[in-house]
Design a protein around this nucleic acid. Structure first.
Lengths: 110, 110
DNA sequence: AAACTATATCGTAATATTGCAATGAAATAA
DNA sequence: TTATTTCATTGCAATATTACGATATAGTTT
């Protein structure tokens, strides 16, 4: 099939998996890393940093934006991208919760 | 094309994206949630919890295992799965680093 | 206005993922 | 030994993703 059966899972599970999926490509991690590395929000030139053609990067940016991981502001004829903290906080909280739950369990096998 | 150009990215970027990709499906998040919810490691019956056929779940478990997110111990003719903390720590550290970096920047735009 | 710059969208080819029925393999129970 | 149970693997169809050339759009410059 190839189509995920999203309707069978909880909203939280879909939310986390959607965010994780958006991060599931090295180019998109590289974009986030670059947005962090640069002091101000970056207007363009992500294309010069990655080994991908402009349409491909535009597509990756769109996916990050759709997932809510980055925001884009129009600035003249360029677009200024930066990280959206909200989404990252959701992920951070999720992993923190898992970690504390594991800690609590101290599994009796494995 | 459809093939990711992994060779162009840093090891860290590939590591994080691989882990994120493994979490990029609600069924796999549901599996992790279930492993956490149950007190001991679970031997089977994930199939009864999810709306997917047994081969499909076996496939998802394999992907989680390949990514290093879960471990499996053979126990008679059943297999006992549980979460591997190491991979989760890597992700947690990554998101923590991003958060502190964003905090430091206090972006002057967006 | 025309030329230029920056980004998005379209179309398409190559490849990957998702899901399942059928089947296999391996331990256990009868 | 012959079921039975539990999980993995194979093979395949449907769909999604990745990448890019060509083209469109929109602002800027000349």
């Amino acid at each position: 099939m190839g189509a995920t059966k999203t309707e069978h899972y909880s909203e939280k599970q879909n939310q986390i998996s959607t965010l994780a999926k958006a991060l599931g490509h090295p180019a998109r991690i590289a974009i986030l890393d670059f947005l962090l590395k640069v002091d101000t929000c970056i207007c363009g030139d992500i294309v010069n940093e990655l080994p991908l053609a402009q349409p491909t990067i535009s597509q990756h940016l769109k996916e990050l934006k759709n997932a809510g991981l980055i925001k884009g502001n129009i600035e003249g004829n360029a677009i200024c991208y930066c990280i959206d903290e909200t989404a990252l906080e959701i992920l951070q909280d999720y992993f923190k919760t898992i970690s504390t739950n594991i800690e609590k369990k101290k599994s009796n096998c494995c």
